[in-house]
Nucleic acid binder design. Sequence first.
DNA 1: TTAAAAAGCTGACAATTGTCATAGAATCCC
DNA 2: GGGATTCTATGACAATTGTCAGCTTTTTAA
Lengths: 229, 229
Amino acid sequence: MESRCENCIIRQFNSLRAMSKEELKKVSDSKTTKMVKKGEPIFEEGDKLNGVYCVRNGVSKLSKLSANGKDQIVKLASKGEVLGQRSVISQESTNLSAIAVDDMEVCFIPKESINNTLQKNPNFTLEVLRHMAHDLKEADDVIVNISQKTVKQRMAEAFLYLKNNFGEDADGFLALTLSREDISNVVGTATESAIRIISEFKKKGLIHTSGKKIGIKDERKLLEMVEGF
Amino acid sequence: MESRCENCIIRQFNSLRAMSKEELKKVSDSKTTKMVKKGEPIFEEGDKLNGVYCVRNGVSKLSKLSANGKDQIVKLASKGEVLGQRSVISQESTNLSAIAVDDMEVCFIPKESINNTLQKNPNFTLEVLRHMAHDLKEADDVIVNISQKTVKQRMAEAFLYLKNNFGEDADGFLALTLSREDISNVVGTATESAIRIISEFKKKGLIHTSGKKIGIKDERKLLEMVEGF
DNA sequence: TTAAAAAGCTGACAATTGTCATAGAATCCC
DNA sequence: GGGATTCTATGACAATTGTCAGCTTTTTAA
């Protein structure tokens, strides 16, 4: 189901909102919509991107393969986020892979529309810049967390992050269900370690699980653990 | 010794080069130059910055304090780099401290000049954006390195990084001399671990030392170690 | 529906890394 | 110039984390 960018509410959440009506019309005329099934890539590390992808539905993991064959998930992007901006801006091939965690619906916007607007509309550029400044700050936080916190602390933090950013379903489970392997790749640890810590948290009554679903039981204690108590 | 921004060659290396003559003149009239002694802060985590700092001489470490009381060095900035951009752009207090590793000379540019140009000169904004895109890509690499490589690999990488970015002196030592503690804070490990690995590298003939100075002896083997052989 | 594949789980063990204690070397500064 | 302080270095030990192996459960697809 196609629609016009001018009317797309998703736009309210990202830098596209700083575009003028005319610019949006051009974008809308050149964009294409794409369905991506769970597990399929939107793009992969090293690809040269000819545009950016705006997430309409579903969640994507942005990850980077390390020399030892493990993926590190750097960011989870959902509705309203724009993927591939950095690559288009710096005109380099992308350093991250984007893989669907859910079934997804994304809009592809050719780089010409983006670059054109970047050069002509300072408000748009500034808006993109603000977003990127935010991402960079977050990246700094991730660096400090990974290097200074224990795996257990980072696991606790990851669960809280998932709750705060993706919410819970009707039964009190985290709305975004990740495989144990994905969780370990967010946290930056071995899958077995992640599983072990999940078992431990369950025993301690911090979380509860059902299949691969995880629910938070004692948020306060998880928070204390993140802080180091 | 004061001088005019219009004539400053440092500018060639950073986003200020995208400013027009008039804009540069305004910047030059409002800027102040400051000497910062080794060990002194330019600004500290949580400060609200009223402008950015352009490094004319010396090296600064950008670090973030973690809950366990250790600093994590996120970036080493030298001649030509602009500090505090992110904070000024997002109008938040800064998330990093900037401390002089050397004696430094920096120019302070009030945020009004920057913000004004950001709103009026798309080329400048785009240039800043490109820089930030680059920083973000580097930050992703750091995340993957820290989470997927061993301390030994990261130490080897740090030495190569120091050689490539700051060069060597006449005697073949790394031009930028960091304390063992700073090295451990770049790598994200305990100071004792860093020292132990330095000893080990010395025994294996990968590096040589003289006091706190470190020189690279076998670059190839260090590289192999980084790659995981 | 069922066989195959993938994901989840646990134990045992090894490797890595951090912590604490201590001592010598270098540096600072009065 | 000499005492105090900080930095470097190393040993001993403990804690954390990763690896491998084997088993169970869940999911996938023929």
